[in-house]
Write a protein that binds this DNA or RNA. Structure first.
Lengths: 210, 210
DNA sequence: CCTACCGATCGGTAGG
DNA sequence: CCTACCGATCGGTAGG
């Protein structure tokens, strides 16, 4: 693996675990096995390295997101199944990319303030907007075909985001390894609240895997 | 105001905004208007000051929590109203004590690792356990009197916590000033999912204030 | 990618 | 609560 990639990788781990101010360039260099000053062969400042890591994670999420929704759209599942799979996919991302997720959540909630605007811009342009758009499309379809109650899709996206953030917070706070039950229960009750009234409540929560 | 109180107050603001490593003792001293070394008349180390702030916020939350639930138990509201008021009270705490809430969330999700165990111990002993207990009592009552579906109260507490954390994350991420709509929508859908089946869905979301 | 450095700031101490 | 100071480490540079 190239030295630049190793710097980015170790920087991601350390920034995720200790934050921007809790991570020094010496710590990153030590983790890579080089001298601190060698980092400056690749980046002109700590801020530049940090933003590069932000871009790296944003690009990773963008790729995963596009791939997932492309596959999801190929088959014509009911909205109920589509949303459940979005939830499962999102949480699987946490399991697969813990460092990236922890980093992303940290800089989203508590960014170093002199980089806040740039972080929010990158997040919006690379990930947040398209994720929001894909979700809104699914919800709109669900309202149109009668699967969902007639609620504005913007509102449904906001509610779904609350569910996602709530579950992710629980995972981060309690350091869960096993998230399946949490996701299933959370989904079950969320779906009970948004589905059209003519679907029986006793019929929810029995979703099979793809 | 005493100098010690001013140190605690400015430390809380700075730790909340910049975190443990992003806040230096000089910054705190500057904010108070004293010299850095004067802080050592009150605390023996940065860690000691930080933990004192943790204790202060924990004590604040404990007092608010005990007061709120004492009042809540005086009147015999339906579980639906009780839970909605818990949600409203919790979010009002955010509005009233933004610094404390931001600090509390930061140290809960991303504590400085050498203080992680102590922070979690203080949080559990002072706030988290009793909040959990009060919620479980309400849910248990709701299941017993038939207002709620027959779901273990532990599970209902976890779901309610997801709702709270999801809403709080939305507020922190988007810097909302107006949280009323988010809370009402979130509550509406949460309640639709947990209420007993014989209550009509169209009857929810019309909760009055106390 | 290295050695050798820089001024600034860090948490913390001595002594009053 | 102050002045004066400590060694260690910070982000960053010069020069190879």
């Amino acid at each position: 693996m190239k030295s630049l990639d190793r710097i980015n990788q170790e920087a991601l781990i350390l920034f995720a675990e200790k934050g921007y101010y809790g991570t020094s360039l010496s710590m990153i260099a030590n983790a890579v096995g080089i001298r601190k000053s060698s980092i400056y062969a690749h980046y002109n400042s700590k801020d530049e390295l940090f933003i590069a890591v932000v871009q790296f994670v944003a690009g990773l999420y963008k790729a995963k997101l596009e791939q997932f929704f492309a596959v999801l759209k190929e088959v014509d599942h009911p909205v109920e199944h589509q949303l459940y799979h979005v939830l499962r996919w999102y949480m699987q991302l946490w399991v697969d990319k813990k460092n990236a997720t922890k980093f992303w959540r940290r800089i989203g909630l508590f960014p170093p303030e002199h980089l806040e605007n740039e972080i929010k811009r990158i997040s919006a342009e690379t990930v947040a907007q398209s994720f929001h758009k894909e979700l809104a499309d699914i919800f709109r379809k669900g309202v149109e075909n009668g699967e969902l109650r007639n609620v504005p899709s913007e509102k449904l996206v906001a509610l779904f985001q609350i569910l996602i953030d709530g579950i992710l917070t629980a995972i981060l706070l309690n350091d869960y390894q096993e998230t399946t039950e949490l996701i299933q229960d959370g989904w079950h009750h969320f779906w009970s609240g948004i589905k059209a009234a003519d679907i029986r409540q006793t019929n929810t929560g029995e979703i099979k895997n793809v």
